Computed example of a mutant assay.
Amino acid sequence: MPHQVAVITGAGAGIGRATARTLARAGCDVALIGRDRARLEDAAAELAGLHVRTAVLVADVAEADALEQAADAIEDQLGPITLWVNCAGAGVSGQFVALSPDEIRRATEVTYLGTVFGTRAALARMRRRGYGTIVNLDALGLPRPLRAVESGARAAIRAFTESLRPEILHDGDRIHLSLVHLPAINTPRFAWTRNRTGKRLRPAGPVYEPEIAAEAISHAAFGRHRDVWVGLSGLGRRLAGLLAPTLVDRRQSVRSYAAQLEKNPAESDAPDSLFAPVAGAYAAHGRFDLIARKTMPPLITTTIRTAAIGVALVAGAGAALSLLRRRD
């Protein structure tokens, strides 16, 4: 395996910051990309004791030229990029009709186009050498009400990733493109997401610490897995959505609202990171350590998922056949 130079977008806090630590412990030199220089430098200082080289690049992932310049600077400082992880994202929560076009556009550009532009910058350089790994994130868990914009962006990332894989295979490059499907993660984003709900935001469903997400990303990158699902709940709910979509819609319309909102009202003047970074010392964790799970759940790879869906379909077909026989 060649020496690893890993690039992480959104590296100043949350999943990106936890991923930087995990990859540095694995021996990778790490380039950190984000909008807040102070936070990136603080993240780089955390890696100093791990005896790896680091590079700090300030860039907005929604600007393709800025990412291209950052990628050139990384290769000048650290060497050829072998691993690129797209962790950056931005969101706005609230009833869709209450969101402004500028908010919708910005959240989509950062989350979706940030991944697209990051993938493009990585792929252009990896193709010069014919190898490398890119990891994208399906970081919402499930489409949820009040988060329609981010849900749309994550769906676009899934389709983009799946469409790009055949192109890479067609050209014969040894470039691996992985997609990691994450549940709710305890990051600072719940404090700095633009919030139009009037209530404080909280994660819905099983909540895991960012180190769990970072381990899954590392597993996908070094194991060269096509897809990695963290835990069973998201996979089960997606299967339920295929089998009983109307029932899932009704359940979401009631339970998902309550699951994502606290009783306490949100601060009307709270800063958010949609258009500019929020000042202050933020690290990987958010404020939900008391409820976040620390132990690694099952990691479901594509092969395991295919087998599980096959078993579920066979069981469903068997139940349907049994019911028809009883009617006869």
Rank of each mutant, 00 (worst) to 15 (best):
V180L: 02
H3C: 09
I300H: 00
R250Q: 05
R326Q: 07
L50R: 06
T19M: 05
H170F: 02
A48M: 10
V135A: 01
V110R: 03
S322T: 08
L321A: 12
Y112C: 12
A307K: 13
W229L: 06
A66F: 00
N264I: 14
A122E: 09
R189Q: 14
A156F: 10
R200S: 04
T306R: 13
I309C: 01
F190G: 03
G316T: 15
D138S: 09
D29L: 06
L299P: 02
A11C: 11
N195E: 06
R325A: 13
G130W: 01
W84G: 07
L323G: 09
G236Q: 08
G172L: 08
R196G: 04
G89H: 01
A24G: 05
V254Q: 11
E46G: 08
V230P: 01
A159R: 09
G141K: 11
L274N: 00
G280Y: 09
L23M: 15
P206L: 05
G234N: 02
G79T: 10
S322A: 10
E68M: 12
A11H: 14
L242V: 14
L142C: 01
A43N: 15
A315P: 07
A266D: 05
L67M: 14
T108K: 07
T108R: 06
V58R: 05
S93G: 09
E211F: 02
R325F: 07
N86F: 04
L99Q: 09
R128M: 01
A45V: 15
G79W: 06
L164M: 03
Q95V: 15
P297H: 01
T301P: 05
R158H: 09
E162G: 07
E167W: 05
D42R: 15
A259D: 14
L32P: 02
D42W: 07
K199V: 03
A216P: 14
E211G: 04
V61H: 10
L78D: 07
H181T: 11
A159D: 00
R127Q: 06
A73R: 10
